[in-house]
Write a protein that binds this DNA or RNA. Sequence first.
RNA 1: GGCCCGUUGGUGAAGCGGUUUAACACACAUGCCUUUCACGCAUGCAUUCACGAGUUCAAAUCUCGUACGGGUCACCA
Length: 475
Amino acid sequence: MKEIRTRFAPSPTGFMHIGGVRTALFSYLIAKHNNGSFILRIEDTDQTRYVEGSIEVIYNTLRDLGLNWDEGPDIGGKYGPYVQSERKNNYLKYAQQLIDEGQAYYCFCNEDRLEDLKKIANNKKIPYKYDGKCRELNINEVQKRIEEGEKYVIRFQMPRTGKTIFDDKVYGKITVHNIELEDLIIIKSDLMPTYNFANIIDDHEMDITHIVRGNEFVSSTPKYVLIYQAFGWNIPEFIHLPVIKKEKDSDKKLSKRDGDATVEILKEKGYLNESIINMLALTGWSPGNEKEIFSLNELIEVFDISGISKGNAIFDVDKLNWFNNNYIRKLSIKELCQLTIPYLQKSYDLTEKSSLWLEKLVSIYQEQLSYGAEIIELTKLFFEEELEYDKEALDYLQTIDTKAVISTLKEEIIKINDWNEENIVKAINNIKEKTGIKGKPLFMPIRICVSGKMHGPELPMTIFLLGKEKLIKRL
RNA sequence: GGCCCGUUGGUGAAGCGGUUUAACACACAUGCCUUUCACGCAUGCAUUCACGAGUUCAAAUCUCGUACGGGUCACCA
């Protein structure tokens, strides 16, 4: 059987949107599930949109997530080069072939004329389509105008009758009437190929067997098919993925920048690679059973195209948090520290804190932590001089008499010489004996004094971590 | 507007003509556990699959229409 080859073909125009990464993931999964190859190709035919450094972003993002490519610009491969601008001459050759065969033609219509056509179409309220004026030009005239240095593009000649059908692996049979299709430009006036054309050529030359991409390409796929046919090439399988939409609720947006979720933002917030992969795999795809936690390797094993859904999906941050919490809980102390301590460093002065102290601090929150940056808010009470008291805590204090507990606590705390958790527990027990108060009325005043809140991690540990001096101050 | 596609609870979704009174997970609610929170556990949460009609003994599942949503109609990718 023929080797399955898929590709991820991003443009270096900025950051990696969540949807793009999901496309890469699925593409990777389809290849790997079938023991095939996953190829990375950079599509930079539009030089005006190139963003400095974005190729590195692509590399880093993919590598971080474990989506390693078998062939690509940096590691090469037998189908290279893997950057489209370096394949420029290739495309011209193929375009020339189509012209020779009468399946493509030079077009000299300038932008003004095209503008006019669009305006007219607009006024008549009919869809704009290039009228094919330059189809009729004879060879001599074309020759002459090229020699005179007139600018031109090369257009593919679409059939004007019949229909084109292709079988999408997700959406099924899709039929389009050829008359709807425009004579699309395959070579631009700067002699660079258009995205569509370069795509087709490269996919063919690189032996790509399965084209995985967002469903915004469904409408243009018939044009692809026609070009494949014009060359007499095998038509690859098409797998169009449903789009991941933005969060509707503005509060839940992943980014302040207009809700565009990028992997960078997720990483900045301290989401683990495993969770991002796991989450992405499950938006727009289902294994068909109840399993939800998947490692990349497990995904490779079970991934199947038939599990891809047709409807668009919304990226649910709550669910991501759940996944992430799941993975955070499996972290070793060391890994947990690596994840969280950088956030503390950024927000607080850690110079006097020992690493053991930090380790303990962070580990009391391991069970509930949803993402790395959350640690900042969670541990606030250990760093701030002025405690903020929650309203519910204040209200609670009104309902009981706290004087005895607090004053005894102070006495007991001062008495402790060897500051450790054990002695703190003893101190609390002493308060219980001396005042005769127990349960909630005992612990709550202490907790509120210590943290300003009614909820929090285990009390003795909290007190221990807070430190004797700071505690006495608070009392 | 033309063309293409989609629509199962707040979210991701299972379901592919008949033991489905529509899985499961997130979120939410309540209870248990806990000094509290979190974790964990238990329970609840769509009498119904956008709506209408048709096919059928039988439809969330097939067909058609309507509504809503998305995509596309560039010398952008």
